[in-house]
Design a protein around this nucleic acid. Structure first.
Lengths: 336, 336
DNA sequence: CTGTTAGCGCTTTCAA
DNA sequence: TTGAAAGCGCTAACAG
């Protein structure tokens, strides 16, 4: 029960000006004499006046709010990414509102409906795989939206992100280049993420004679990485390298290996994906793939705002990822 | 440039009813015949109608939005907490909007002003230490707000959280109870968080003859915990236990210890604080303090909504934390 | 149970 | 450079 607060009318009264003039000042203050302007600003401060966003939105049909729907925010690249989007939007007076989909298309649809109902003007989605009704909804209402964390120039909406397939492929080549011929691949639920599927396709593409690839699906958290690694260590001949589609999984792998008394990278190499802020701190430091989360956030934010403000068309952008060589991968040494 | 979309008037026209009736249906639909109700709902679906939130907010002076300002969302207890608040609010049609303060009082103030400007009706703050202007602002405008992640019955606003001091004290007692007489305490920047200061006070309170306590301030991330541990390992006589005010710090400590070739808990015990989702997965599994993040989120959300909806007064609530015994702490063995 | 009507606070032509 | 006035889409009395 917030108490009533200064309105534009009060400021007008206090300055002896009209509400129209006050409004002008509040919006950039073009066509207002410096004098008037100062008077208004002073009164605003004095009355602690803040324009009512609902009234403003109603009047302009602009909420200056963009929505991002992400699979999760815990332990992940998304935290960094979200911070970057927020930063980018804030620069131009936009706000970001977030929803979590848990990687579920229906949840994503429901969240989008809610956010639309909240007045979001544009949407940032993760990946290119979405509920058909969502796309219909966006199309029907002409809601601008982009796919992120993925690069797929032919997708239904502009994609702004990195090429997951190529990156995974590059990692595989890096591993095989280090002499690994038996590699376990740990990944999260394929059904929940097309980014995961892309990475899988990339890893798969590296397949060739004399290369053994074992794919293991697990839950996308440290426990998942640990359990999967533990399981794979049971098998008769263990891989010389474990490639994880997320640093979080890799962390779990590291723990499992440590518990099993195996040394990294001497006994088995581990490679991650994401380059989270702690990835260089693990023991040993994790070799992984850096993802341009910050640049992606900036690009997404800028494109959407330019489109909303000036009608600039949205377009796909490919951002580069890169292998970060650290200590968890070593050339395979000839063993017994 | 979102295209124009169905308004309440269109639904009214389509059903041959008045906009008032449509409005009634859209808001719980009391005093409406089931028949009419169905007709309206059908028309809404058919026209893909969604009430305009700005218009609704303007008309009711209710945005049904609450704001949470947290220090960070990466690697932390806050991710879980935020998810819980969101969940709780969503149940009753409220939305959560988040801002990050980076532990800075000025940033927090700025964020609050922005969120207020966005129409937030109530605020969730972390800790009890805030910019005086923030409190003035809230008081002046009568904005409901609570302090969370802390329990301090005498604070300016109701605090809903756990007793950081007592919990840290309990952890110290646990450690000394295991025979540790030289304990290093790792914590984040004291100036940035009164929760950290409370924990420090609690640890301090365990001080007594024959107990050596070394406090080390570091950055609140894995790198910080690792660096601090590395540094403290340099000194002539090293502690038998390291108590970290965050599991993130403890993870760093674990890595540093591992690199130094020291075994946990045989050579040195490590205790954390937070019980993050991966804390039971580390090698060895981390003994830590569980924080009721989920319950806290629910309590905060419920209190705020009850207050906003029915004027129920806000009040402080103490939630319990508890030591989670795992494998990283062992009784100190008589050495050389 | 349903319709009429008066705003909610602000932006935005259009005139002055 | 400033003011008057017409809405923006919806809710909430108040009538009927």
């Amino acid at each position: 029960m917030t108490r009533p607060v200064g309105k534009i009318r009060d400021v007008a009264k206090a300055t002896g000006l009209s509400i129209a003039t006050v409004s002008r000042v509040m919006n950039g203050g073009k066509n207002v004499s410096p004098n008037t302007r100062d008077k208004v600003l002073a009164a605003c401060k004095q009355l602690n006046y803040l324009p009512n966003p609902a009234a403003r939105a109603l009047s302009t049909s602009r909420s200056k709010t963009v929505a991002a729907i992400i699979p999760t925010i815990e332990h992940s690249i998304f935290a960094k990414y979200i911070a970057s989007i927020e930063h980018s939007l804030a620069q131009r007076g936009y706000s970001l509102v977030i929803a979590i989909s848990h990687g579920d298309l229906d949840e994503e649809l429901a969240a989008a409906q809610k956010l639309l109902g909240m007045g979001a003007e544009a949407f940032i989605l993760s990946g290119a795989d979405h509920h058909p009704d969502l796309l219909d909804l966006f199309t029907q209402r002409g809601v601008p939206h982009v796919y992120s964390s993925i690069w797929q120039p032919a997708s239904a909406a502009p994609s702004i992100g990195y090429d997951n397939t190529a990156l995974a492929r590059a990692a595989m080549d890096y591993l095989t280049g280090h002499g690994h011929h038996h590699i376990a691949v740990l990944h999260g639920p394929l059904t929940e993420s097309d980014r995961t599927r892309d990475r899988q396709a990339g890893a798969q593409a590296a397949q060739r004679d004399g290369l053994t690839l074992d794919f293991h699906e697990t839950s996308l958290d440290v426990a998942g990485g640990k359990a999967a690694t533990r399981a794979l260590l049971q098998s008769a001949n263990r891989p010389s390298a474990i490639f994880c589609f997320s640093d979080v999984l890799a962390l779990g792998a590291l723990f499992a290996l440590s518990e099993a008394g195996l040394r990294v990278p001497e006994d088995v190499s581990v490679m991650g994906f994401d380059n989270l802020d702690w990835s260089g701190e693990t023991a040993p430091a994790l070799t992984t793939i850096n993802l341009p989360a910050t640049r992606m956030g900036a690009e997404v934010g800028t494109q959407l705002m330019d489109h909303l403000d000036n009608g600039t068309p949205l377009g796909p952008v490919r951002l580069d990822g890169a292998i970060v060589e650290r200590a968890s991968v070593a050339p395979v040494t000839r063993r017994g």
